[in-house]
């Protein structure tokens, strides 16, 4: 019984990962794609790995380490990528409301 619960949790997790991939295709610009693609998938992979850990309790330690690893590296890589994209001058989509960073950037660039 507990095994079926674990399997269902991992199924729900893989559905979240699928939704993230759908977002990567559907969203209009880099930043929104990042919101969906690398972050909606965080909860997805957490659920998937923990679900497998419930099915196979002997592997739980290593799977938890993988989860911690994903939680630590995921925001760092998406932050680095978003920052690089903004530095490289990739525009936000026309749907965007405003861009405070661009407003502030010219004067802050002068002080190095």
């Amino acid at each position: 019984m507990i095994q079926i619960i674990g399997a269902v949790i991992s199924l729900v997790g893989s559905m979240f990962i699928f939704l993230g991939a759908l977002g990567v295709v559907r969203m209009p610009d880099v930043y929104n794609r990042m919101q969906a693609g690398t972050k909606a998938t965080t909860l997805g992979s957490m659920l998937t790995l923990i679900g497998i850990g419930i099915v196979l309790p002997g592997w739980l330690g290593k799977l938890l380490l993988l989860v911690v690893f994903i939680i630590i590296t995921n925001p760092i890589s998406s932050h680095a990528l978003a920052r690089a994209a903004h530095h490289a001058g990739i525009k936000l989509t026309e749907k965007s409301v405003r861009d405070n960073l661009k407003e502030d950037y010219p004067k802050e660039d002068d002080n190095g």
Binding site: M34, Q35, K39, L43, P75, S78, H79, A82, R83, H86
Partner: peptide, 13 residues
């Protein structure tokens, strides 16, 4: 990093 991890918000700079 917490702000980045919650979907919908992402720290750029």
């Amino acid at each position: 990093n917490t702000i980045t991890l919650t979907p919908g918000t992402m720290t750029i700079e």
